[in-house]
């Protein structure tokens, strides 16, 4: 038994962008030989500007996209040797936009029940109780069971998405910018909830974000991506104190400035 929960080696993903019917195809390398490892109980943050390949990497680690090169192992087992249902119990996503991550035609109850139904390993009588327990765990009142997503606020929707991800008690959760579509006032509630759940359920997180304040608050380790490549990886504290790569320095400079005027004086 290994304590390495996620182990990605040399992951490559190319997108073929069609230039039109009779012209050739251009290849865009969205993820370029990225290697990562996350051990049990850690929160690895992946930061980088928009379009640098974070979501693509997340989808590869979730088994939603086939990489064009490299291997991803979860709990020591290569992704392509893990069955669909086994994989679902191992790793779950939380997406950025809670307005697109819930089917508008389904009730909250049936959205959260779906993972139980798909796994089909429990007697249906217990489903409702488990759904209610999980809703309570993420701070959703039971009266929302019969409501539809568009009757909920963004923060409540994100809680539904978290409940759906956690009801089968996965080991790894990949959060792709879980708060960047939410109001600032709700962001910290969701982040605190994620942190509490991690301790309570002994989860391992991969947290994708371009908000360095979020990363500093949540992560134990940080990987920095730039144009599809991983340019730096370090313990969170170390990275914030002593960034090595030029891009990381620009990133820290551009975001961690509480007062722009004082920053200008320092320069």
């Amino acid at each position: 038994m290994t304590d390495l929960m996620v182990e990605a080696t040399g992951v490559i993903k190319d997108y073929k962008i069609s230039q039109g019917l009779f012209r050739g195809k251009e290849i865009l390398r969205a993820v370029d030989k990225v290697s990562l490892s996350v051990s049990r109980g850690e929160t690895l943050a992946i930061v980088g500007e928009s379009g640098c390949g974070k979501t693509t990497l997340a989808k590869i680690m979730l088994g939603l996209l086939e990489p064009d090169g490299g291997v991803v192992k979860l709990c020591g087992k290569p992704l392509n040797e893990i069955s669909r249902l086994e994989l679902a119990k191992l790793v779950q996503p939380i997406f950025q936009d809670p307005y697109s991550s819930l089917n508008p035609r389904k009730t909250i109850g049936s959205i959260i029940t779906l993972p139980l139904k798909v796994q089909g390993d429990l007697s249906p009588e217990t489903w409702k109780q488990r759904v209610l327990t999980t809703m309570d765990l993420v701070g959703l009142p039971s009266r929302m069971l019969e409501q539809f997503p568009n009757q909920l606020s963004g923060g409540q929707r994100q809680r539904v998405a978290i409940a759906r991800a956690l009801i089968n008690r996965p080991k790894i959760v990949i959060c792709d910018e879980p708060t960047s579509a939410l109001d600032v006032s709700v962001q910290s509630q969701i982040l605190n909830l994620l942190n509490e759940l991690r301790k309570e359920l002994e989860l391992t997180y991969v947290l994708i974000s371009h908000n360095l304040a979020v990363v500093e608050h949540m992560a134990t380790r940080v990987a920095v991506m730039y144009f599809g490549k991983k340019v730096e990886e370090a313990e969170t504290e170390q990275l914030f104190k002593n960034p090595k790569h030029d891009y990381t320095k620009t990133l820290l400079d551009s975001i961690l400035v509480p007062d722009p005027r004082s920053a200008r004086k320092n320069n």
Binding site: L62, L64, A88, K89, F95, S100, S101, N103, P115, A161
Partner: peptide, 22 residues
């Protein structure tokens, strides 16, 4: 392209099930 389709894939739904229910 909606995330709820990706979410139901991640939850382990089969393709026919996704087509019929999502």
């Amino acid at each position: 392209s909606m995330d709820y389709v990706a979410a139901s894939q991640a939850v382990g739904c089969s393709t026919p099930r996704i087509l019929m229910t999502e």
